[in-house]
Structures are given as C-alpha cells and as structure tokens.
Design a binder for these strands. Sequence first.
DNA 1: CTGATTATGATTGATTATGATTATAATAGA
DNA 2: TCTATTATAATCATAATCAATCATAATCAG
Lengths: 262, 262
Amino acid sequence: MPLYSEERKNRILSDIEQHGRASVQDLVETFGVSESTIRRDLNEMEKEKLLKRTHGGAVSNDSVNFEPTMIERVDRFYQEKQKIARKAASYINNGDTILVDAGTTTLPLVEAIKILKELTVVTNSVVHAEALKNSPHIEVVVLGGRLRHETQALVGPITDQALDHLHVDKAFLGTNGIDLSGGLTTPNIIEASTKRKMIDQATEIYVLADNSKFGKVAFAKFGEISDLTGCITDGEVDLSFVEAFHQKNILLDIVSQQEEGR
Amino acid sequence: MPLYSEERKNRILSDIEQHGRASVQDLVETFGVSESTIRRDLNEMEKEKLLKRTHGGAVSNDSVNFEPTMIERVDRFYQEKQKIARKAASYINNGDTILVDAGTTTLPLVEAIKILKELTVVTNSVVHAEALKNSPHIEVVVLGGRLRHETQALVGPITDQALDHLHVDKAFLGTNGIDLSGGLTTPNIIEASTKRKMIDQATEIYVLADNSKFGKVAFAKFGEISDLTGCITDGEVDLSFVEAFHQKNILLDIVSQQEEGR
DNA sequence: CTGATTATGATTGATTATGATTATAATAGA
DNA sequence: TCTATTATAATCATAATCAATCATAATCAG
C-alpha cells in the first residue's frame, strides 16, 4: 500500500531529524518512489523551513540538532548499516513475526520495516521499541530483562525466559565477530546467552554484520555459522567465507559498497 | 442498514485513529457509499480539525504530530505531577527495589529518583526505561510484553509472567479512577490485569493520583483501596476519602497546591 | 398535503501526484 | 585546470483524485 505524500514527508523528516541527513538515493530506495518525487518533497519541506536542502539530499535544519560531531559519530557507518538493513528488510514479508536483536546495526532495520503492515516485531532493545512506538500497524513485543547501560539491550534470565514462550519466523541478529572456526561471538557472556536463545526460537536466522566483523572472534560464543539461514553484509568479503557459506548452503548477501557524499 | 452520517463519521474517525490513515476507496467499500459522500465527510472532519486530509484519503491528526500531543498530554498537569512525584520519591530509600508503573503521572518519579544510589527499578514502560538509561548506578529491569501504542505501556501475558518471578519492596502505580466503592480502575482491561499483578508482587503499594481521579470509576478494576499502603495526591480531597483512608489506616499524602512559585 | 431542507450519488472538467525525459548545473577525479 | 559523473530543475504526459454542480430521494415543518 503506497504512502500518502503527507506520510512520506513526515517520515523523511523524522529520518533526517534522527540521523542529521538523508540522501535522495536512499530515500528513493526506502520509499520506492522516483527521484522527482523525493526532490519535490525535499524542496517543499525546505520552503517550510523544515530542513535544509543539499546536493544529493538534505540535512536537518533543527537547532535541536546540536553537536555535529555527535551526529558524525553516530553516522560513522550509517550508510553501510542503512544498506545492510534495507537488504535485510527485503527478506521480511507482511504478516511475518520477526525478532530484532538490539544493536546499532539492527536499528536501521526497524526504521526500514516501518512501511510494512501486519508485522509482529519482537525485540530486546528499548531503543528499537521506541523507534516503533508510532507505528500503530506494527505489533511490538518487548522482551523484558535487565537493561545493560552499555548497549541499551535487555538481557538476563527474564529475557531468556520470555523467549522461552515465543517462536518467530525470522530472527535478525547483530554480532561482534563472525569467523569460520570461531563462529559467532560477542564480548558479553550474558548477551551471548540471550542471542543463543534467539537462535533457538527462530525458524530462520539472519546475521547483519558489516565487513569489519569478518574474521573477528570475541569472548563469548553464541552460535556457529551453520546455525544461520543467511548473513547480510557489505563490501569485500574474503573468498574463504564465500566458499564456506556456499558449501554449507548458507545465504551470503553482499550489498555493494558504492559510497556517496562526504 | 444505512448509517446516519454522524455515525459513519464517528466510525471513519475511529478507524483513522486506530490505523493512522484511511483511503477514500477503502471507506467507500467499508460503508457502501459513494466517493462524494466520503469526501464530504472527510472534508467536514478536516474543518473540525479531527483529521488531516491527503490526496486519496486522510491521516490521523494525532499521529502526524504525535510528539507535540504527547508532550502536551504530559504537560497538562505537569506542575502537579511533578510535586506528587517528588513527594512519592521521598518514600524511596537507597537500596530499595521498586516497581514503577507506566504512565504520565509516574514519569516524573523516575526523573526524581535519578539522584538516588543503589536502586533497582522495575518498570513496564519503555519511556521510563529510556529516561533511566544514562543512570549507571540504577539497575533497570524492564518487564517484557506487548507495547500498547496508546499508553506506551508493556502489557499482556508476557508482562504478567515476568512479574511472577519478581518481588519488590515498593510499587508506585498510576490510576484513572479511585473511588471508595469502585476501588482502583483503569479504562483498559489488559492494563488492569498487569496493575493487579503489580499489587500482588509488592510489599508496599502506593498510588499516585492527582485530585481529578478521585470519585472516578473507569471500566476495569485492578484493586481495592484497602490494597494500598498509601496514596499521594494534590489539591482538595473530599472529606469522605480522608476519613475512609484514616479508618483503614492507609496513608493519604496530600501535597499542597500552591507550594513553590510559578 | 406542499414546499423546504438534507443527504446522497452521478457527472465532468479541474487539480494533484507522480514518473519519465532532457538540458543544465554542481561535484569529483585526473 | 579539464573532463566525467552525478544531481538538478524544468517540462511534459498520464493516471488518480478532486471540487463543483446538478438531480434525486428521503425527511421534516407547517
């Protein structure tokens, strides 16, 4: 179902306010409309002083957006994560029940799935839940648990226990390390336990990992590569991984790294 | 059975508020009337500021500027709630494990307790958890559950089940109605169930209720006044309540209305 | 009853949203 | 710098949607 221009503009605006900027190309992909439409939207909103137009996109006009360095830091790999997230979103269908792990890599995913309907999203992240709080057509289920201040993730026995009683079609996890022998790893042992549980409770398991995670092994292991249904990443992936994934019949989806702006 | 136009308009409005949007075509099919009629309805309701018209349909006026309305709602009795919250905070000691119910009345409470140390805060609100995310000396536990978009509260079986395994020293609840015979009530039956569970799992139970809640009875009951340890409120409370609370030996803490300037 | 009012549906020319195209402008790379 | 690439505004075509209008039927007042 197509969005009305009002809705689209609202989402563009919140996207820009959240991330400081947006490119025409990304918005085209996000909303599935033409460049003309996006440009018209941006120009109209600029007239209303809601944002500032730039070549290739627009930036936030809001004085609320302090500290350009902060935006920069958050946005460091924003483009890559955005692309990975959009690709991951393409695996999701209307009516699915999905599980979205906490983490900065999966956060753009919940942004990307806002346009879907009749979706049930289970998450162990307060931030992800907040991002979906104004999407009335998406059923949001938050796993309980102890809030880890470091990662804003909910972890621990309450989380694992909540997962016990749930089963989802697809799980989308982040990881700190993905290695052929070391498997899937993360620095925190309690988060690893929760991630493991997520794998157990999902039919299909996808990992979102930018290419810097490949070949890395962190402290706590939460799964093997063979546990996966697929992995979505970007950039150059070592041939050994490509072969190993192919041999195990695991999907390896690599989004192109064509850079833009800045 | 033909609908009267008023009835149709009401249903269109609730449809839009529920789903955030509606298309002329869908409404035509839903109500079996012509496009002209639907457009007239929508235009009239737009004049009354009940919704926002778009090409092809209409979107909710609330969801478009959800943020301001939410802030507005929070701010409505902000001064009063602030005072009630500060008073409630005085019942909390370092080292306590407390439960804070979702709601606009209890939100200032978590702001007020940030200064305390060694506190464990259990909450069923994503918003409350977010407010505490940068307080590393406070252990935050989020109850899981389905996110109710209307109140941003987590409710349902997952929430209740998470509560099963917890016990807290003090619970701080909001309520929509507090009445001598009607007890404690709230409009939503699922939220009532969660509130009931909270009462069961706490040693001391406090209700935060501004004076407009007294004598009100909402749809779903979650407890009796005799369940309470105390009630913190403001303004003028009817003498019958004062006597009843005194007789049941329940604390009734009334913060004065013109305390501190502004 | 009659005439007025109201709600509705049908018709139609006008308006809007959108995508495609193209010549121009801005940017990046050599 | 100059050139290639990319983004842009301006234009046009088209399909969807709309407002305005009129006709009809139901309802209401007297």
